[in-house]
């Protein structure tokens, strides 16, 4: 593994203002008019490094900020504060023009192939657009041969290049999305729940394809999912997110054999497994709250069975454990939970 990480994310924060209209922000309170901006804090200081050639999986429930992280990382939406470095260059504050060369090196595959492919463009058009945009020196013949090669490499017959997305099945569409991402020869691919719209057997096909491509091109993946079985199979390292924070980061093996954070434990115990001995899942009370107020203390406090006064007051720091994983939890730090 390389000494310098491919991507370094530090103290990344992102909040969305919910009341967007200027008039809606004024409130009458105790006889005085106040202006109040309500915002949802989707990311609350995320620190992550992604190494060259690895697959970092991000898991967490709906609303924990997984997708926001992906979008901020890709520059699809600006960060509120924090820094993103690609190799040694800071990329989060670049303008569109300067960002372009990084767009070429970072690509994204979206969750729903029905929505992410333009229904009015043929597969050929979908693929030729990024290729000709990023390689203006190529002529038509060269582009054609590249597209043919691309389609073959994702297992789609090049003869169907003139068809439209609706003529393909879900799995095939997701392969086309992957082909589109690969068309500009990126180093890094962000995949936001690429399998969740697919059947088990088709999931296996797409996952195999992604693994093949990784081996072939030494790709680095940031893989976002809530399917822990896929994570166990596919990931090098796993980051567990809860309410806009990373609460545990560990190698896949360590995470699945000895989960530490109370949330990770509950999450892992909830996976419906095939084995016959029925272990009762650890029940979490309630659901993920939305973060309107900036959290004070640990983000997991409301659902945590081990929460004490300190958890309500100060937010835990990511601490490195003896087995190489990092956990943000007071209970573990204090030795109340081992």
């Amino acid at each position: 593994m390389n000494a310098t990480p491919l991507i370094q994310i530090s103290h990344l924060e992102k909040s969305f203002v919910t009341k967007s209209s200027w008039l809606g922000q004024w409130q009458l309170r105790r006889g005085k008019i106040h202006r109040r901006k309500e915002s949802v804090h989707a990311l609350n200081g995320v620190n992550l490094t992604i190494n060259q050639g690895e697959t970092l999986c991000i898991v967490g429930e709906t609303g924990c900020g997984k997708s926001t992280l992906a979008r901020v990382l890709m520059g699809l939406t600006p960060a509120t504060s924090g820094e993103i470095h690609y190799q040694d260059q800071r990329i989060d504050h670049l303008n569109d023009h300067k960002r372009m060369m990084f767009r070429r090196r970072m690509q994204m595959v979206f969750q729903n192939p029905y929505a992410s492919l333009n229904p009015r463009m043929t597969v050929y058009q979908t693929l030729s657009e990024p290729i000709s945009f990023h390689n203006q020196q190529l002529n038509r013949v060269e582009i054609n041969s590249q597209i043919e090669h691309l389609l073959e490499s994702v297992g789609i017959s090049p003869s169907s290049a003139d068809r439209y997305p609706h003529e393909f099945s879900g799995g095939q569409r997701q392969r086309i999305s992957l082909a589109r991402a690969l068309s500009v020869e990126p180093d890094f691919i962000v995949a936001d729940e690429p399998l969740s719209a697919l059947d088990v057997s088709v999931q296996a096909q797409v996952l195999n394809l992604m693994m093949d491509k990784q081996e072939e091109r030494n790709l680095t993946y940031l893989f976002i999912t809530h399917d822990l079985a896929v994570v166990e199979h596919f990931a090098t390292r796993v980051a567990v997110m809860y309410l806009g924070r990373v609460c545990e980061l560990a190698s896949t093996k360590t995470l699945f054999s000895t989960p530490k954070h109370p949330y990770t434990r509950a999450l892992l115990s909830a996976i419906p497994r095939l084995d016959t001995n029925m272990t009762q899942p650890i029940r979490l009370i309630g659901e993920v709250p939305t973060q309107i107020e900036k959290p004070i203390g640990c983000v997991f406090q409301a659902r945590c069975p081990y929460a004490n006064q300190r958890c309500y007051e100060t937010s835990p720091k990511m601490l490195r454990q003896t087995d190489g994983s990092s956990v943000a939890c007071h209970a573990i730090e204090e030795g109340r939970l081992s």
Binding site: V200, S201, E232
Partner: peptide, 13 residues
Amino acid sequence: ALPQMSLPGQRLN
């Protein structure tokens, strides 16, 4: 085809 059925990192069936 379930991921649990193959060794981690191996191709899925």
